[in-house]
């Protein structure tokens, strides 16, 4: 029997009950969501990205992000996400310029974008592995499982086969090869409404299966919990399991994971320049606000003021604190 969602657990009350205060830490990562356009339309996607989306960061906003990086050397990492970030015309310039500034550049690369034509222009992106290697980009790629069934169920028919081909091409230009300094990290997230397995054990399983069956190498596997927002929340509600899932996340609350939530040291920038505590808050329009309640954008960034802000937490944040924790860099506890 389907049930309508009831009041979700109170995240901040749960945090307080463990005697925790989750204040901002020094900012080390600027994460730009440069487009909601994607060549895929995955069932779990918290961005609701698809080939039909049109939002993308313009040149002026991208320039401003680069100015911020140049002015703040303490921001060590530029993390580019989307959608498929490679589909934004500003993408390659952002990578080149951020590398010129000496920053670590991380790209959330969905693998198939190498092989599919650009959904708008139809152009090929097969040069991406070579481009990534030339600029020593850290590649982070979703692969929901080391087998076809779960991967295609979540990301669409044929995605597993194309992902394996794309991984081979990354390996061929040096990614995950000893001594090359080209990191290739994979991301697991559950296909259904359950928590991720233990990261190290699953990583060993992936390493063995991908090498033996497909000859593919990678560096680390990061496990990420599905966020109960947008498409995944809609799927939970359709199945009548939203309340169960929220209760499960709350029941698995881990104070050690909460201590290390990524929003304490990351700033998320939307395609339109608005600032957020994380990419999930961005998709929920939970923007950073000034004293007058107006949205804060990258154009009026004040790091000192940001360090005193109150991070905006809501029920979905339970996704980052359940079990071994979850972040854009995998488990946190």
């Amino acid at each position: 029997m389907k049930t309508l969602p009831t009041t979700p657990p109170d995240f901040e009350a749960l945090v307080a009950s463990h005697g925790l205060r989750l204040d901002p830490r020094p900012l080390d990562t600027l994460q730009l969501n440069v487009t909601r356009l994607c060549n895929q339309a995955c069932h779990h996607c918290h961005v609701d990205a698809s080939p039909k989306r049109t939002e993308q960061m313009d040149r002026r906003t991208a320039d401003r992000c680069l100015e911020v990086l140049a002015a703040h050397p303490s921001i060590a990492t530029l993390d580019l996400t989307g959608g498929a970030p490679e589909l934004n015309p500003e993408f390659e310039r952002l990578v080149v310029e951020a590398r010129r500034l000496g920053r670590r550049v991380m790209v959330r690369h969905n693998l198939t974008v190498q092989l599919d034509p650009h959904p708008v222009t139809g152009t090929s992106l097969e040069h991406l592995p070579g481009f990534f290697a030339a600029h020593e980009v850290v590649v982070v790629s979703s692969l929901p499982y080391h087998q076809e069934y779960f991967t295609d169920k979540q990301r669409g028919r044929g995605v597993f086969g194309k992902s394996i081909e794309a991984l081979r091409r990354l390996n061929a230009v040096g990614y995950a090869q000893p001594g090359r300094g080209l990191p290739l990290n994979l991301v697991y997230n559950p296909v259904g409404s359950y928590l991720p397995p233990e990261q190290k054990a699953l990583e060993a399983q992936y390493r063995r299966e991908l090498l033996e069956r497909h000859g593919v190498r990678f560096d680390a596997l990061w496990t990420i919990t599905n966020m109960p927002i947008h498409r995944f929340r809609a799927a939970l509600e359709r199945a009548g399991t939203y309340d169960d899932y929220m209760a499960r996340l709350a029941g698995a609350f881990n104070p050690a994971a909460a201590e290390n939530v990524m929003c304490r040291s990351l700033l998320s920038v939307g395609w339109d320049g608005r600032l957020f505590d994380c990419d999930f808050n961005q998709q929920l329009d939970l923007e950073l606000q000034g004293p007058d309640g107006a949205p804060v954008t990258i154009f009026d960034l004040d790091l000192e003021a940001l360090s005193r802000r109150r991070i905006r937490f809501e029920a979905h944040c339970l996704g980052c604190t359940a079990g071994s924790g979850s972040s854009c860099g995998g488990a946190t506890a």
């Binding site: 087998q147 779960f150 559950p190 259904g192 397995p197 233990e198 054990a201």
Partner: peptide, 12 residues
């Protein structure tokens, strides 16, 4: 069933 999936197993 949940336990198997959360331990990294699969339907096969």
């Amino acid at each position: 069933t949940r336990g198997c999936l959360e331990a990294g197993s699969n339907p096969e």
